[in-house]
Design a binder for these strands. Structure first.
Lengths: 200, 200
DNA sequence: GCAAATTAATGATTTATTCAAG
DNA sequence: CTTGAATAAATCATTAATTTGC
């Protein structure tokens, strides 16, 4: 165990047990006060500093999340594959019909219980007089997701490669007024300005 | 997860990852065109509709704000507490050497020649050049665990019995409004009035 | 059995974010 | 637009587990 001249804290079993227990009980990011308490009391079992406690919770929380995420990913892997295959078929099925598939997926791929166009929006807006006229009018329009088909996308046949960092950036920035300058598959659609902040 | 017959959208990990990334990159309220893009491309990873994207951003934005607000409130409380503690420390700095080992272990064990007592998060990061950052940062940064030694503990001679389930729970749950039924020493320092969750 | 070598855990730092206040 | 405050994610670095060759 920790060499006498260790440069880092080595929790004793008791300390570890205690920290874990606290974690289980919901402690995640103890504040300074709590850290002090914990440190003070754990110091009974061995050398320990406040920062050790601080770091321990940080790391434990993070790694717990990671572990969980990994699990979920694995669990979803099968379903994912299935979905992807479905999508693949779906895409291929419609591919011959050119532009249709894209927005079809967008608004119709789901069970689409709803006949599309009523809903939620009205809830949030119409019911609340609070909203200013400006917002109301803004939302009075069709919901965003009901829009027409994005023509620019219809020609994209390489989804697998299309989705990438650049695309993300592009979408992030928000659409510049002009449309695709170059009709190439991915990047050309959106002249990437460096500004990441989209206008609100 | 999502049962095949689920009535609501269950984002796949890839979808979630992508959405989060876009959020991080600044997307907040994508317009219809953007939603179409996003939906179309995310549909590659699984079933998804435009409204899902729309709602996701709505909800994420809202919840992010809520979370932040909560955090800020907490921090306010913290700052106050810490200030109080600082004052306390200044007044009682040399009170007793008896159980010195306790807090000494807590904050003075390492090189840590830091003079403690600086307000946490009085962070002057960036003032220090990259190299030697290790040493420098030790002094430059202030973290919650940099707070003063818990003087209150100095007089606590019953750690063995004090540290128990109850204490753990106390720290975990966060302090109930009422103060300790048992006036133990350590508790006095932190009149934990705070429900960790402050008023909105 | 036992160390050197290698790998897995995990402690400690640094970096990149977030929203909103100024 | 910039900055404040505080992470949480990513990364670095050291310790513990373990494997391996003898």
């Amino acid at each position: 165990m920790c060499p006498a001249s260790s440069s880092r804290w080595c929790p004793t079993p008791e300390q570890l047990m205690t920290l874990r227990k606290m974690y289980r009980n919901g402690v995640r990011t103890p504040n300074a006060s709590q850290i002090q308490h914990i440190t003070a009391h754990l110091s009974f079992y061995g050398k320990i500093e406040g920062k050790n406690v601080f770091y321990w919770f940080q790391n434990h929380k993070t790694r717990d999340r990671q572990k969980l995420r990994g699990k979920l990913n694995k669990q979803l892997h099968l379903q994912l594959q299935q979905q992807q295959q479905l999508n693949y078929h779906h895409h291929h099925h419609h591919l011959s019909q050119t532009s249709h598939f894209l927005y079809d997926l967008g608004s119709g791929s789901g069970s689409t219980s709803i006949s599309t166009f009523q809903l939620p929006f009205y809830n949030s807006v119409g019911l609340f007089p609070k909203r200013g006229a400006r917002e109301a009018s803004k939302q009075a329009k069709n919901y965003p997701w009901k829009m027409g088909k994005p023509e620019a996308l219809k020609e994209n046949t390489m989804l697998t490669t299309f989705y990438n960092e650049d695309w993300t950036m592009m979408v992030d920035v928000g659409p510049p007024p002009c449309c695709c300058p170059k009709p190439l598959k991915t990047l050309e659609l959106f002249p990437i300005t460096d500004r990441l902040k989209a206008a609100e």
